[in-house]
Amino acid sequence: MPQVDVRAPRFAAGVTAVVLTLALLLGSGVLVAAQAAVFAVAAGAGLRRAPYGVLFRVLVAPRLGPAREREPEGPPRFAQVVGLVFTVVGAAGYLLGAPAIGAVATGLALVAALLNAATGFCLGCELYLIARRALPARA
């Protein structure tokens, strides 16, 4: 499993929190959809190719110095799928004329992003173990 700098997912969560806050304040379904697209790329192509991952590597990491810790990307990548589900519902709510649903789903995604950025607690990662537990063992 590829490894990522532990600071990268946390940075990405911070950017995500800013984007989702703006989207909520502007009531912009398009912006929520853009964040959903970012999640989709991260989940599908991996964190290293994800937009915020690239941003971290190119702009942030060189200023912070070398990575002190790395982690396997599986759980944070799974967390992107969790984020994707919430933002897809949020974007659909806004764009299909149900802004209340849009705001609630986007708000929940914002909670997860804020929590990760502020405390390092990764809700999607915690769900990863619970999901692995619930599913039968893979061969």
């Binding site: 806050t21 989207a23 909520l24 304040l25 502007l26 009531g27 802004p99 209340a100 705001a103 609630v104 986007t106 708000g107 929940l108 914002l110 909670v111 804020l114 929590l115 502020a118």
Partner: peptide, 16 residues
């Protein structure tokens, strides 16, 4: 500026 969105942001921060 979206009223419901602003409320959602405040609720999200409190929940966090």
């Amino acid at each position: 500026m979206s009223g419901i969105g602003a409320v959602a942001v405040v609720v999200a921060v409190v929940m966090t």
